[in-house]
């Protein structure tokens, strides 16, 4: 599968502070890459780097197989950016302008802009073209961004917290839209989100960043279909630890007030070996917590 985005070894420093430390990730054609991490972990900075919004200290960004960066030429900018739809974490459009005027700005910028499609999305999302941007709620602002991002027929969507602020029904609608977008195996999506349940539903791969470093980059099914989270009492935990099921230093766990949560890399094997211990399907959220905050024994 060809990669739409290939980020390799990004480094960004501010003085002595390194905010991106050898960050690499990919977004394949036909795939949705979920990008997760705590606040300030480096998600938005990585997205800014991919979009060529800041100079880098090291590393390369390839978009559609072409090197891209802050000082790309006019022709490269036109070639690459016209194929990307962007949704930022806050609605960036000029507050004083009505939604219709926002469409005019986008129409002027994108040769491939389809006004009819934009109007269809406005209708679908219940956005009144006469309403001013500043009067939109956060969720409505996100919908307007999505309408703008999709109306120029992009090949790649880069979404920074696109589902934040949406009510559950609207979120499901947006997730359906994103699934539809990648269904032809020609498009791809990079989506950062705090709402990992959304990524549970749509992501193909999940990349996690913490303190500017990638801590895991896995296929989502490897997490949610294969792994499990065992809810152990202390005595059970000790029994598992001494059973030889895990290699020494490989038991990733978090102590909770009611017991110990243990990461089972193969939950089916775990359940066969320890049928008396409850073992749930792993969610992305649980896996992130175990990876970032868990201890090893």
């Amino acid at each position: 599968m060809t990669d739409l985005i290939r980020v390799n070894g990004l480094v960004k420093r501010y003085g002595t502070k390194t905010v991106l430390d050898n960050v690499s990730l990919t977004v394949p054609k036909g795939g949705i890459t979920g990008f997760i991490g705590a606040n300030g972990a480096g998600k938005t900075t990585t997205i800014r780097a991919i979009l060529g919004l800041m100079p880098l200290d090291a590393g390369t960004v390839e978009v559609f197989g072409e090197l891209f960066g802050i000082n790309a030429s006019q022709s490269v900018n036109r070639r690459i950016k016209s194929r990307i739809g962007v949704v930022l974490d806050t609605c960036p459009f000029i507050g004083d302008l009505p939604i219709k005027a926002t469409g005019s700005i986008m129409k002027a910028a994108y040769a491939s802009w389809r006004q009819g499609k934009f109007e269809d999305y406005l209708d679908r999302f219940g956005l009144d073209p006469r309403k001013k941007v500043k009067d939109l709620s956060r969720g409505m602002g996100m919908k307007l961004q999505l309408a703008c991002a999709l109306a120029h027929d992009p090949d790649l969507l880069i979404l920074d917290e696109a589902t934040a602020g949406l009510d559950p029904l609207a979120r499901d609608e947006v997730l359906d839209l994103l699934r539809e977008f990648v269904s032809d195996d020609m498009h791809g999506i990079l989506i950062s989100s705090h709402i990992t349940s959304d990524l549970d539903k749509i992501a193909d791969t999940v990349t996690c960043i913490d303190e500017g470093r990638i801590v895991f980059d896995l296929e989502k099914d490897a997490i949610t279909d294969m792994m499990g989270i065992a809810r152990c009492r202390t005595s059970e935990f000790e029994q598992i630890a001494t059973s030889g099921f895990f290699e020494a230093g490989a038991m990733r766990h978090i102590r909770q007030p009611h017991g110990i949560d243990l990461l089972a890399p193969d939950r089916f094997a775990f359940m066969r070996r320890f049928p008396e211990v409850a073992c749930d399907r792993m969610s992305i959220d649980d896996f992130m917590q175990l990876t970032l905050k868990g201890e090893l024994r």
Binding site: L51, L53, Q74, N77, K81, V86, L88, C91, P92, F93
Partner: peptide
Amino acid sequence: MNGWERFRATLPVSRDA
């Protein structure tokens, strides 16, 4: 306003333009 300058830079035009 609202990060418009950042978003504008994601449109298919170079910084010089």
